[in-house]
């Protein structure tokens, strides 16, 4: 496949010189994100996130399967990130690039290993039946900061998702179709968000949030911090690159925490709006009226 074009010396210098004068090409300040927009699909569990010109679509799906033999009480939860040539012709199907591996590891650590979802609640019959929840991350357009956008999309899609309701009666498992019973949300514990800092300059003294693709190409290092709004770090990944002062990293973490809180508030707002939109059918009102009695 054709390789991604490297920035020319002129482009490189232009971006770096501008940064030295505290300027970014799109006029943002160093710690400002591009416009973040989240839209939910008609179906449950589809989140379309745009961050500037980066666009990521996450889709959640669930099916009943057999749990892993070594974890009979846990459900299965997977996040797949396959970068298609849609994001850039440099990505090839079935040949994972470094970007793809690091992205999938980051999402895995941020969302799965931090215990954002209660996987034990996905168990239906111990050792025999469980839910397998999977999130497919589709990168439609890649203009830098894929990690943050992808992580936000995954968390949004999972929180929006409803899985079919089930019941156990006399050892018989029934999975209800959406027409029979309103699907139920996943058992969600906390929402982690990725915040990526990019470092520039000979000693990595300049730190930028939400770098665009052209900025990412000239960066000397990056650090992705995942936090939830309770101030818990779920993961930190500064995988090499130019060494950065430890104190600066701590400052980055503090700023990241406020950003994570902003993300959290935005997502809560969007989810509430969507719930309201769906409520118009009156179906939910009907159901809740039933519960009141």
């Amino acid at each position: 496949m054709p390789r991604e074009a490297e920035p020319s010396l002129n482009e490189r210098q232009f971006v770096l010189k501008a940064l030295e004068e505290n300027l970014r090409l799109d006029g943002r300040t160093f710690d400002k994100y591009r416009a973040l927009a989240l839209t939910f699909g008609d179906e449950y569990g589809v989140a379309d996130v745009t961050l500037g010109r980066t666009r990521v679509l996450a889709k959640t799906s669930a099916e009943v399967t057999v749990p892993y033999a070594d974890r009979p009480l846990d459900g299965i939860f997977t996040i797949t990130t396959e970068l298609s040539p849609m994001a850039s012709p440099a990505f090839e199907i079935n040949r994972p690039t470094e970007t793809e591996i690091l992205l999938s590891r980051l999402l895995e650590k941020t969302v799965r290993r931090s215990g954002a979802m209660d996987t034990e609640s996905l168990c239906l019959v111990a050792g025999q039946k469980c839910w397998s929840v999977r999130v497919d991350v589709h990168v439609l357009s890649h203009d830098g900061n894929l990690t943050d956008a992808a992580c936000f999309a995954v968390v949004a899609a999972l929180r929006h998702f409803r899985k079919p309701d089930t019941s156990m009666e006399g050892g018989v498992l029934t999975v209800y179709t959406p027409a029979e019973r309103e699907p139920v949300p996943l058992s969600w514990l906390h929402s982690p968000f990725c915040i990526t800092w990019c470092f520039f300059g000979d000693e990595g003294q300049m730190a930028l949030l939400d770098a665009t693709w052209s900025e990412e190409q000239v960066r000397v290092g990056s650090c992705t911090i995942s936090l939830n709004r309770h101030g818990e770090i779920c993961q930190i990944a500064k995988l090499g690159g130019t060494p950065v002062e430890a104190v600066a990293l701590l400052q980055c973490t503090n700023v990241a925490l406020t950003k994570a809180k902003e993300f959290s508030t935005y997502l809560d707002k969007k989810l509430a709006e969507d719930a309201k939109r769906r409520d118009k059918d009156g179906l939910m009102a009907e159901l809740s009226a039933e519960n009141d009695r």
Binding site: D42, E43, K59, S61, S84, M86, H138, P164, T177
Partner: peptide, 20 residues
Amino acid sequence: IQIVLQVEASPENDYVNTKL
């Protein structure tokens, strides 16, 4: 000439639980 087609949504059938 590379054409990538990403299916985003397919029609739902409320009466069946779809398999992957």
